[in-house]
Every structure is written in C-alpha cells, then in structure tokens.
Computed example of a mutant assay.
Amino acid sequence: MFSRAFSNPYISKWIVQGAGIIWFLGTFGLLMYYGVGQAVAIVDALIFALFFIFGVNIIDQTFNFYVPSGRNNSMLLIFPLLFSLVASYFHFQLLRWIFDEESLYLVFLREVFLLRWAVLGMAEILVALLALAVSKLEEQKEIKNREVMMHELSREAELSQLRQQLQPHFLFNSLNSISALTISQPQKAREMVLQLSDFLRGTMEKDHQQWVSLEEELTYLKMYLDIEHVRFGHRLEVVFDVTDEVKQLRLPQLLIQPLLENAIKHGLYGITEDVRIILRAYKEQNYLMVQIENPFDPEVAAPKGTGFGLSSVGRRLFLLFGRKDLLESKAVESVFTVILKIPQHK
C-alpha cells in the first residue's frame, strides 16, 4: 500500500517508522499521565508500538496481493479488529510475564485491555481504509494507462494502414501505365518496371522509419518522378525550390508523395500543353512549410479518385499531432495550391 503510494520505497519505510515513533510517544505519554513508572511505561509503549507497526506491515502486504471489494468490504473491519485483539492479548500476556511483581500495574493492565484493543483496532481500520483508497487510485491509474496505451496502439495501427494504402494506390496507377506502354512502347514499359522496382525496394528499406529528413524525402520523390516522367514524358516538369537550410528538417515519411501525385493528376487532367508543378520548402517559425502548386482547368471535372492524397495526409497529420490546421488547400483562378505545415520538435 505505502510502496504503491510512493515511488521511492525508502520514503514509505520512513513513513511507517515515523508513525511507529508517534504511536510510541503517544502511548508513553498516556501511561505517564496515569501514573505508570517511567521504566515500565517505556517497555509497555515500545512493545505496543511494535505491534502497531507489525499490523501496518501485514495490512500493507495483504493489500498488495488482495483488495477486498463488494461484499468482501467487511474484511476492512473484521481483519483489523481480529489482529488488534490478538495483538492486545499477546501484549497483555507478555507484559504480565515481564512485570509479574508489579501488582498495581498488572491491575491497570487488565482494566485497560478493552480500551487498548479498541484504540489499536480503530488505528488499524484507518490504515486499512487508507490502503483501500490508495489501491483504488492505483487501479484507476492503471486503467487510464491501459486506455492510453490502447489508444496509442489504435493510432499506430491506423497510421500504418494509411501508409500501406498509399503504395497500392500509386502502384495500381503505375501498373496501368506499364500495361498501356507494353504494346506501344515496350522499351519504356521495361524502363518503368525497373524504376518501379527500385522505388518500391527503397520504400521497403526505410518503412520502419517514422520520421526522415526532408533531403531523404526529396530523394524518394525524385525516384517517384522518374517513373512519372516515363508515363508523361516532356509534358511533366516539376521544379524544386528548396534551400539547403531546410533539407535537414524532419517530417513523417511518405507524406509529400501523395500530395505531389495529386498535383500531377490535377495538373495533367484536361490540359493538353506542358504542365509545370512547383514544390517549395522553407522554414517559418518552428514549422517546415511545404507548398505545392499545380495548374488546373476549373471548368473540367476532377478525375475520378482525386482527393485520396489530401484526405490521407490530413488524417495522418491529425493522428500524429491532434491538429486539423496543418494542411491547407486553395484554388485561385487556374492554380491549385496545397500548403503543408510540419511542426519541428526539439
């Protein structure tokens, strides 16, 4: 009980010893008040205090293994009263044996037997109630910790599921492109297969990393763009406007790729001329800012499936940071812009 109430076992040891000293001094003072000799009072109070400390330790050990509840709450009264009765009886017999020639003290000892039992019993009951209260608090704390742990596991599972969804989403698009190139341009299809293989291999090698530097993420993005260039040729141009000072800032892995894929879809769908997509990265206060701009035709309906990248990234950011203001998107005239804010932890 006390060991669970205080993280340091030495603190609980000193608390029990302090309570024993107070018990000893209180008993000694009462005995002196009733006219018991000093030597006899010291022995009496010392033995009585030892029985009190022994009872506290027994209750402590009992509540470490068993906490009464429901109908068993009566044990909070029965056990301390039974122990105090046995302790008072042994205290009486031991002192009668030690001071067998002190007739007046023996009469006093006999007369206060029930009073000693009541006082010791009440004290042990209070200790038991304190033990029960501490046990209940510890139980609630453990339940809360388990709930937090389950929430964390659930959050990690959803994050993992989101990351796993992104690859098949991109993979299916790439396989469709490979299928289309197999007959018309078999050499490009073969080139795309090799690049896709390298891309997926690199993804699996760093899948265990939750956070990566922006420089690592850009390397990954360039592998992805090599594949997209095979699909779209000269029509696609992606410009990286990234300063060296932000390349070592960190972000959750695979976070930018679905946004860039979304920009390519928006930019190329319904537009026949060349498409220029701009990716900017800079630091603003304690945030890594990533801004992606792509042209789009506001009069043409968006391609089927567009929006998966934005929703998945928004959900990941919410699970990681508990915030919904880290991803913004806006369309001004014929330019669609996505702004990603990634807090930089110390």
Rank of each mutant, 00 (worst) to 15 (best):
V230G: 08
N8Q: 06
S334N: 13
E261M: 01
L259A: 05
Q17V: 06
K346Y: 07
I47G: 11
E205K: 08
E205G: 02
V335A: 12
F28S: 03
D226E: 14
P168D: 11
V67C: 13
E293A: 06
K283C: 10
L268K: 04
E245D: 15
I342C: 06
L175P: 03
R163Q: 08
L31Q: 00
L106N: 11
A5C: 05
L214V: 01
L171A: 08
L126G: 13
Q257E: 15
L104G: 04
G270H: 07
V239K: 06
L236R: 03
H208Y: 09
K222A: 09
V212I: 15
L327C: 03
L200T: 04
P258H: 11
S3Y: 12
L319C: 04
A45Y: 05
L94D: 10
N176G: 06
H229G: 05
L166T: 13
A180K: 10
S184H: 08
V338Q: 05
F296N: 06
Q167Y: 13
W117Y: 10
F92M: 09
G35R: 01
R71H: 09
W117G: 02
M122C: 15
I143H: 10
Q167I: 14
S135K: 07
Y220G: 15
S84N: 09
S160T: 08
V67L: 10
V275Y: 03
L254M: 14
P80E: 12
E156G: 01
V290R: 04
S177T: 03
D44G: 03
R96V: 03
F99V: 00
K265M: 13
F240N: 00
F51P: 01
V148A: 15
L255C: 09
A263G: 11
I78E: 04
D297K: 06
H151P: 00
R316C: 07
Q285A: 09
A302C: 06
S7C: 06
E228L: 14
G37F: 14
E191N: 08
A118W: 06
G309M: 06
I264Y: 04
Q195M: 12
A118M: 13
K136R: 14
L255G: 02
H229W: 08
S74V: 12
T306N: 15
S329M: 05
K341W: 00
S197F: 01
L25P: 02
I59P: 02
F65M: 01
V238Q: 09
D44L: 04
P80H: 10
N73V: 09
R190F: 08
L236Q: 07
F6C: 02
P303D: 15
H208D: 14
G29S: 13
F24T: 03
L25E: 09
K188I: 10
K247E: 11
Q165W: 09
L249C: 04
I278A: 05
Q187S: 14
A281Y: 01
I58M: 11
D198W: 05
V290I: 12
Q93D: 10
H234Q: 14
L130S: 12
P80A: 12
A263K: 04
L326V: 01
V338P: 00
K206R: 14
I125P: 02
L259C: 07
F51M: 14
N8I: 00
Y220S: 15
V242L: 02
L95V: 01
V86D: 10
E215M: 11
M1K: 05
K247F: 11
N72F: 14
F240I: 02
G322D: 08
I78L: 14
T182R: 07
T272E: 11
P298E: 03
I22H: 07
L279F: 04
A41Y: 02
I277P: 03
A133M: 07
